[in-house]
Amino acid sequence: MSMKMRALRIMLMIMLATLYGLSGVGDLARAEAEDSTPQIQRAAKVNTFNRLLKPPSERNLPPAEDGIHDPTSEGTYLLQSPREAFDSLPKSNSGNRVDWVKALEEKYIEPRFDRFDPEKKPMVFDLNIVREVKGSMPDVVYPHKQHTEWLDCSNCHPAIFIPQKGANQISMASILMGEMCGVCHGKVAFPVSECRKCHSQNKTAEAKN
C-alpha cells in the first residue's frame, strides 16, 4: 500500500472515529491512562461501521450528538431528543424517518391549525391534480387533500404555483434545485428520493406506447 493510500485510509478512519466519538474530544488524558486494549481488537470495533448505510443508531440522535447543537451548553441537554419523540410515530424510509402524513391521518399527532384555538379544523380541499409524464415513469398525482391538512392555500398560491391549468412549468430539475415542490420536499417534507410517493399512478397499457 502506498503512503498516500495509507494516509487517505487513516483520514477516513479519523472521520469515522470522530463521528462515533464527538463527545470524547476532551478525554485524551483519560484515554492515555486507561488505554490497554490490544490495538487489533480496538480497530475491529471501528471497522464494523458500514459507510454505505447510516445505521439506525446514528439516526435521530439527541441534540448533544447531532453535530449542530453545542454539547458544551447546558441548554442543549434540556431539549427533547427526536428519537424519543418519534418512538411511537409511524416510520418512513427517509427524512426524519417519520411518516408525518400518516402520523396526522391516524392521529398519532394532533398539531394545532390555529395558534390559540386547539379545536379549529383546517379546510381540507379534496382536489387531485394528475400530471402525465413521459416514459414508463408513473404519472404524478398531487393531492390537495394531504397538503391542505398542513398548509393554507396562500402558502403556495400564487408565490409557488399559479392555480391555473397549464400555468406551471414543473420539472424535476427545478425541484432538485429547491424550487416548486422542492421548496418543501427535500427540506421539510419527504425528500425527492421517494419517487413513488408522487409518481404514484401507473400508466395504462395503451398510454405507455
Binding site: 472515529a17 466519538g21 488505554d35
Partner: peptide, 11 residues
Amino acid sequence: FAVLAFLSVSA
C-alpha cells in the same frame, strides 16, 4: 489510530 479507536468506542 489506536487513540482514536479507543475514544470512539469509549466516548
